[in-house]
Structure formats: structure tokens, C-alpha cells
Design a protein around this nucleic acid. Sequence first.
DNA 1: GAGTAAATAT
DNA 2: GATATTTACT
Length: 323
Amino acid sequence: MREDESNWFSRWEEELPSPEELMPLSQTLITPDLALAFDIRNNNPNNPSSPQNQQPPQPPQPPHTPPPPPPSSLPPATPTHPNSSAEFADSADLGSGAGGEEPARTLKRPRLVWTPQLHKRFVDAVAHLGIKNAVPKTIMQLMSVDGLTRENVASHLQKYRLYLKRMQGLSGGGSGGGGGGGGGLAASADPATDHLFASSPVPAHFLHPHPGGRPNSEHFMPFVPVALQQHHHQQQQQQQQMAAAAAAAVAAHPQYHRQVGHFGSPPNGQFEHPFLARQSSQPVHRMGAPLHNPVPGSYVEDLESANATGGRKVLTLFPTGED
DNA sequence: GAGTAAATAT
DNA sequence: GATATTTACT
């Protein structure tokens, strides 16, 4: 069932989640319901900086921690190394009371959370670049997500390729093989690693570059700016998946020791998104967004701290196409 | 200098 | 245990 290229493209656009449909996986996480369940006192539901995350111990800093510079003044730039020092702790959430919030959040690169949506964007970029031109640098530029570093993309790309490889092997049928036992569908690939990837549809071209005769001529589209203005609700499936995953996570770890979707959504089907309210009035300037991208950095950064894992900061980027 | 691959840390 | 980050090699 291969759709036409153009058709695919159309679908591509449509499948892009609209900002309203999107729900950052790293919401405040704690819904009133859940909060009650755990006796968590959420002072201000509107304030994402809820003190829910208490970090008793300081997160073990990386072994190669350089001499901590005076936190008073911020280095000019060069966010090459996310890890700076203990200043990790303060950020957006915990440091709400600290007072001064600084561009520091740009300098520190906590931990990028590849949300299904973010990953989708990644896939889109790769798809349009062509698997052959899909290199970290280019992908990063295409994604135009502020806060996203080449390392991030490279790392993710690496994982993604592995995933594709697996898919090929599984669906490829036959040839070679090896492996044995693979009668399952591609979707039955590894549950863990593929979970994220499975969330985003993988362009067919990826799996079979050119089955017929025409070489992969690349779809040389001007890369239409992803005008995230869709009115489609195709995300329901994903939403459900995420919800399910979240539920599972909660069931497994009541302490939600990691980022999960906006579980606990009230039966009303109404979610509280305090985040949407805080539109990024000023996208942090990265060390250098060299080329103007088709899509301005319509991403907001958000820092969530997960304590259970040892106080690890997580950076979550999610689209805010409210342009 | 960039990209890919593998290893390590959280 | 899984994911993301970091390091090393090509």
C-alpha cells in the first residue's frame, strides 16, 4: 500500500500535530487527582514550578566537572558543555523562588526528552532530507528547534537508524537472515527502544529506498514550513497510546519516577495545561542559529526535574505553533 | 571538521 | 532497565 509521493506529503502535513493537540509529555505531571492520591500539595496548579520535586541529595555531577566558574556572571556563550556545575539544580522549576532566572537555561543542557512529537519532527526532517542527506547537522538545522544540539540529533539519529535497520530486517523477509524467528510485523519490533519511534510513522522510503526502478530521486520540496495549523484529530491514537503508557507507568511506579504523559486526565476529557499559557515570548538565542529556518524556533523549552532518578534535569522541547 | 559507532551515566 | 549523553574512532 504505497501512497503517492505527493499524497504522502499531504499526509505528512496533516499528520503533524497541532499545538492544541499536542501535549508535552513533561507537563507538571501531577494532576489534582494524582496529587490527592499521593498527598501532594500543589500550591498553584497554574504554576509549573510546583515544588513537587524534592531533591534531597545533589545530583552526582559528572566526573569531569570543571572548576565551577562564578555563577554570578554568565559566560559569554559556548554552551558546548551542558554540565556546568551545581547550578543545575536551579532552573525553572526549583529555582522559582531563587529569584533570578537567567539565560542559564540555555547554557545548561540537562537532558533532552524526545517526545513523540519532537521525534516526529525529527523524522520529518530526515524524510525530507533524504536518508542519505540526513546527517545530524542538517537535520538539526531543519528541525530548527532551539536548544537542540547536534549531539542530540546525532545521538537520536543513531538510535533511529538502528530502529530502521530492525524494521528492514523484520519486514524484509527473507533475505538473509538470520535471525530467526521474526515472523512478526515490523510493528512488533523491540518494544522498548522502538516505542518512541513507533509513535511516529516512518516514511516508506526509509524502509525500501527504491524497490521499483526509480532511484531515490529525493523529494526535493522546498520544505514547506510546517504550518502547524492542522485541524485534524488524528492524534487520538497517539494520545491513547501515551495515556496508556502513562497509566502503565503510574501503575508500575506510583511515584512516577520518570516523565510520563498527562495521565490522570479527568473523565471530562479536560486537561489542564498550564504550559500553553506560557508562550515563549522570547525564544532563547542559541549560540548561533546560523540560518534562518523555515520554521522559527517555535519551541519552548521547559525544564522538569525528576528526582526519583537521582535528580536529573530534563529538557523538554515542544512545539508551540501558535503563530 | 563531521559523522558514525559504542560505552557510560543518570 | 531504558534512555540520553558522552567519548572515541573513522
